[in-house]
């Protein structure tokens, strides 16, 4: 059994193109991670992501650049827990 971590990402930038959500979901699926994404507004996205810490790190790295139409200015990472997680998929909220 590999260890698991859950982190919350606060992503600030310009998300007006609307392409960020699908791009992030695609990345979560490739890395077999669960959690959710919530686009608060055109400049503020919240993501919770759960899985193997190395893959969570890879996810953060990909989210820090995103699709070309999106500008990510800052990404803040906060660890929520290091235990099991309730989500079984990656949801768009």
């Amino acid at each position: 059994m590999q260890e698991t971590t859950t982190v919350q990402l606060t992503v600030l930038g310009d998300f007006r193109s609307g392409e960020y959500t699908d791009w992030v979901r695609h990345r979560a699926n490739i890395l077999d991670l669960t959690g959710w994404i919530n686009t608060r507004d055109n400049n503020f996205v919240e993501i919770e992501i759960c899985g193997n810490p190395i893959l969570v790190e890879a996810f953060e790295l990909a989210c820090s650049i995103g699709p070309y139409s999106v500008t990510v200015r800052d990404i803040q990472v906060r660890t929520v827990s290091n235990g099991p997680y309730s989500c079984s998929a990656f949801e768009v909220r």
Binding site: Q2, N29, I30, L31, D32, G51, N52, I54, L55
Partner: peptide, 11 residues
């Protein structure tokens, strides 16, 4: 580069 990682089957 990550020898301890068991890669997910999605890759």
């Amino acid at each position: 580069a990550h020898p301890a990682l068991e890669p997910p089957t999605t890759i």
